[in-house]
Amino acid sequence: MIRVELRLLLLRRRTWVSVLMLAALPVIVAIFLKISGTGSKPIGPAFLAEVVRNGTWFPVAALALVLPLFLPVAVLLLAGDAIAGEASAGTLRYLVIRPVGRGRLLAAKMISIIAFLLIAVSAVTSTAFTVGWALFGLAPIQPLSGGGPPFSLPDAAIRIGLSALFVAASMFGIAGCGLFLSTITSTPLAATLGALGILVTAGVLDQIPSAEVIQPYLPTHYWMAFVDLFRAPVPWSSIQHGLMLEGGYGITMLVLARIVFATRDITS
């Protein structure tokens, strides 16, 4: 079942359209930066000011660009369609009567979402690295804080790779939420919009000072913690909290999805 889902993921046109759009956004930004030089001003998204002076920063900037909205939306479109899409197409009944079990079907769907995440962040970082190299050149990067010698290119590449893995892991909670909602509706759009509503609400609350008490428990709170990988020494606290929080949300949502899906009457 897992191999079937992975094969479907790789053969679907929408998978590669989503990956292409995610990878294209940093390219467009880089071209405008090169032409206008606006990144030299102390404004704009994270790291863009550094990119025009050192293209090694561009994969980090690209991750920061796609993380708040574009990557979560792509993930939620896939997660919301996971079970509800099968029900809408009338194929869910035939899947669950096969000797694979509903739990295994859910696991296969989540594994395909994780595979998409790894493909997407790999495409974004590798494309951004190539574009940053071509347009701005590569050089060792200075730590964001703490002083010390610059990070060499191999060291920077390792930190960029770890950043990409952290960004992918940061989507686990919201992906689990989308998968859970996909088990309680037969409409993929409803599941996707419901998860988007949760995402937007968490993002808004994370910016409101009066919600400070609950902010450390919001799924979006630690998304930018990968920035700490570029400090010397690395403060691991936010990264660890972010991974534990996403793991908690993701596992809880998967358990709830399994419970709901196990008791759901499949009519389509």
Rank of each mutant, 00 (worst) to 15 (best):
A128S: 11
V66P: 13
V100G: 13
A74V: 14
R104G: 05
G197Y: 08
Y94M: 14
A169V: 02
A190W: 03
D155E: 14
R12C: 12
G85S: 09
I208Q: 07
A232V: 03
I97H: 11
F151K: 01
G147P: 06
L63T: 06
G101P: 11
P72K: 12
S170Q: 12
F166P: 05
T130M: 11
T130A: 15
R98L: 14
L6E: 02
L193Y: 07
A107Y: 04
T185W: 09
K41V: 02
A24T: 15
V27R: 08
P149H: 01
A87S: 14
M244V: 15
T187A: 15
P26G: 08
G132H: 07
A89G: 11
Q240W: 11
D228L: 01
P143C: 04
R264P: 00
I141P: 04
I266T: 07
R7V: 15
P99T: 07
P235N: 02
L105E: 13
A108P: 03
L77I: 14
L181T: 10
A61G: 08
V29K: 08
G194M: 05
S88I: 03
A169L: 04
A82I: 04
V121D: 01
K41D: 05
P45M: 09
L11V: 05
A120D: 04
S268L: 05
V124R: 02
V213M: 00
V60P: 00
L69H: 06
E212Y: 11
A64M: 09
A211G: 07
L254R: 13
T252Y: 08
L25D: 04
I119Y: 00
G37T: 14
V234C: 07
S268N: 12
S152A: 12
M171H: 00
I35T: 07
V131W: 07
P154A: 10
P140M: 02
L117G: 01
G147S: 09
L153R: 09
E50M: 13
I208C: 02
L11N: 15
I31V: 15
E5C: 06
L254T: 15
V19I: 15
V100P: 03
S40N: 05
P59V: 10
R231E: 15
L20K: 01
A64T: 06
L243W: 13
K34W: 13
V27N: 04
A225K: 10
Q207Y: 02
V131N: 04
L196R: 10
S237K: 02
L65A: 02
R14H: 10
R159S: 10
A82D: 06
S152R: 04
V4P: 06
S152N: 09
T187M: 03
F151H: 05
P219A: 06
P233D: 11
P216N: 06
I97D: 14
A23R: 02
V260H: 12
A107D: 05
I251W: 05
S237D: 06
A79V: 10
I111S: 13
A24Q: 08
V73Y: 02
R264A: 10
E50H: 09
L33R: 03
G132C: 06
I214V: 14
L8A: 13
Y249K: 14
V234S: 08
M1I: 03
R14K: 13
A46Q: 08
F180S: 00
G85N: 08
L11Q: 10
P72G: 03
